[in-house]
Design a protein around this nucleic acid. Sequence first.
DNA 1: GCCAACGTTGGC
DNA 2: GCCAACGTTGGC
Length: 159
Amino acid sequence: MAQRFWLMKSEPTECSFESVMQMPDRTVPWFGIRNYQARNFMRDVMAIGDQVLFYHSSCPMPGIVGLAHVCSEAKPDETQFDPKSIYFDPKSTRSNPRWVCVDVMADQAIDLIDLATLRAQPVLSGMRVLQKGNRLSITPVTPEEFAYIVTNLVKRIER
DNA sequence: GCCAACGTTGGC
DNA sequence: GCCAACGTTGGC
């Protein structure tokens, strides 16, 4: 059975949840992933419709800021071919691309669920993103973890 | 800005 | 294939 739930990190200065919400189709290609584990999740495991917890990292208030979902299959990350991009990879070729991305569609902004709140939930103590030293920008979330978060921690923001 | 933790690179 | 050096992530 396919993995159904993910947590995806983004630095809000580069791609904030609000900026995705404001796009006409509320969709962004998840470009710039240059970690093999995260790439393999997108390439091999993710499927259209998978639910996503959108997480802001490297910012004053890190945490989950929105609900989203995967809305495309994995496809080549165009930034790897662009010499002007900071994500340019000279070792990657069009015929054999090294890096892929999926499209992510923003669904619902929520009140920030910060790290302290996540860590305070015994049910969530096993979450990958909470483990010491974790730096993976895409991590699997179990159905139990996802259900707990949506049921107990998510406060939807009406707009 | 600091620093712990982890991933990648490259010499051997 | 090993592993030291280096680079990056990301919370604080």
